[in-house]
Design a protein around this nucleic acid. Sequence first.
DNA 1: CAGGAAAAATGCGCACACGCAAGTTTGCGT
DNA 2: ACGCAAACTTGCGTGTGCGCATTTTTCCTG
Lengths: 232, 232
Amino acid sequence: MRSPVWNAGAVTTPPPGLRERKKQATREALREAALRLAVQHGPDDVRVEDIAEAAGVSPRTYNNYFASREQAIVSAVTADREVRVAAAVAARPAGVRLADAVTEAVVEQYTNTGEREHEALLLITARTALRDAFLDATAGIEPPLTAVIAERIGERIGDAAAPTARVLAASVAAAVRIAVDGWLRSPETAGGAGSPGTGGLVVPSGSLSDRLRAALAPLAPAFDAAERGARQ
Amino acid sequence: MRSPVWNAGAVTTPPPGLRERKKQATREALREAALRLAVQHGPDDVRVEDIAEAAGVSPRTYNNYFASREQAIVSAVTADREVRVAAAVAARPAGVRLADAVTEAVVEQYTNTGEREHEALLLITARTALRDAFLDATAGIEPPLTAVIAERIGERIGDAAAPTARVLAASVAAAVRIAVDGWLRSPETAGGAGSPGTGGLVVPSGSLSDRLRAALAPLAPAFDAAERGARQ
DNA sequence: CAGGAAAAATGCGCACACGCAAGTTTGCGT
DNA sequence: ACGCAAACTTGCGTGTGCGCATTTTTCCTG
């Protein structure tokens, strides 16, 4: 029912397909239900049975979409951040440094968070299991990033003998993970006040961009070299 | 209150305390039991109850050491590969390029495998769950690698504002993961013969070093820059 | 439009991971 | 040597992840 943004950067989907649409609707219903119930009753007081019931599917079907309960909750926040980062990189003009394009795209996508994200992040920070799942989700940006980087440096993606794009993408994912990890552990992020309705910006996101830039900076020379090698 | 720092990068425990020794013995007993039973009866036909019984502990205690069944089996192979890589890096003379030191250390530790490792790898390649657990285990080299890299480039490890060492270590781990992943998927590695007792060298390890070097090569410029920055 | 193949949803069952609250062992201080 | 405190082990109970077989839904083709 919403925007077809899940198409960005890929070569798939000539027709949308009715079946896939319903599948995606179910997935989003599970996502939203998981997050809503987690915020409402607390992360530990929500069972998969509740989430499945709220989404109108059987508990068994729920596990066909998400491998863990934490994954579903976190998925509501990370959602299509993965493809957005890759799309943001592809949107940059071809003239700029690849390292800069990637850095700016990552910072842009990780700092432009909606109001609902902050509420969810407050929840995620509390429980360790959710925090780990959230950090693991950063690895999801690797495949689309690999594709866009490979195109930039002129590398065939399937070639196992030329893993430069994959390595760079994985390194970016690792750097982002480190930055976010440090940010979540920082004292500024440790806020109490779980009461909903207060609104307001509880989580300061100011230092996140700094952490992201600091974590991505060491990789810049590797990007420069890869880009230089592509030009030759 | 004893020494909080767990001998990062140094050798192992001359007088470590009697308790820790027993703990490590239990861990190794679980490791060996898990691997032995997995090879003997097949990976799917071994329950945690069997492993715990073979190691002489309760099933609940088993879960105090390993979070999953696959982790225990894989742990028998990965064991202390983590500290060995870091130690191998530290063993290189200070004159050589850091990138070369890391690359050679990784290749050295991942290709020098005993006879028992091959038998285990044959088992791991078969089942997807074990393969994933094995790949996830490569992330374990990150902490010790971070320590040794931080020392080389003169960075304080706890400083969140200077995450260069952590990022580089994580990138190396990611590169290794990619290399091993590609190696395990390669047709040479895909050996049939599920029947135990046949033995013999089915898995050729020749191309693994090539894959490792190819995956680590793109990161070399990042290491050079970090090392150059440390000199100034 | 009918029929069949492919894919997804569902029900069932089993083993597993882990929190909790005991009981047991180890180490340390006086 | 004695006893206390911390660390480790263990039993129990619950929710969960997932393989397998069956039923229902979607899609394609003659």
